[in-house]
Amino acid sequence: MIQVENLTKIYGKGEIAVTALNQVSFSVREGEFVAVMGPSGSGKTTLMNILGCLDSPTSGTYILSGTDVINMTDKELARIRNRKIGFIFQTFNLLPRLTALKNVEQPMIYRGIRRKKREETARKYLTEVGLEDRMHHLPNELSGGQKQRVAIARALVNNPDIILADEPTGNLDSRSEKDILNILTDLNKKGITIIMVTHNEKVARYAHRIVYFHDGEIVKEEIVNAGGGSIETG
């Protein structure tokens, strides 16, 4: 599914150059749930940005579902982000003026799907994340956990191959955290590949595999849950 080789990312030039990723090689199988851990500045966010086609590496290769994405144009990358990748952010990133339903519809606009079909699909995914009675609420009328569920529905509407989740539970209480992780686990069981960045060891344990980053390099990999699925914690 994802194949990254000798990925290097250097910010700036000359003496102030900072190496964010140093010759990272890394792969993710289809249907896998991978957690990425590491301290701030370890390069995990940079990796996620490159995997999400939001940033390009200084050198190295990145093959996504058999396609080399390194030399793609802006338009082609936008298409990949739109159709193959679903993003989930720590701060939810919902559009404040739009209802939950409209927020979920946004990725489908860029895909050119008609209003009626969009609404239908958005309803389906909001129901799937348990928000059928919150569709017409604005983000500020929703709790953190509900906001993140809207964001998950939004990430799913274009049927992505991969979900990239950047600290998806970082701003949530422990109950919502569990809800969100269970939803992600269920999605993974349905075959969606998930890559999740987290600081929290307990959260990382929901994945099959944990990849540890330090100073732009992978320092350790650990298989935690080879069979997949959620495990009871606490």
Binding site: A78, R81, N82, R83, Q106, Y110
Partner: peptide, 16 residues
């Protein structure tokens, strides 16, 4: 700015 970043992540092109 954040909305613009988000829209790009969701698949908006420069032209969009």
């Amino acid at each position: 700015i954040k909305e613009i970043g988000l829209r790009k992540a969701l698949g908006a092109t420069r032209r969009d």
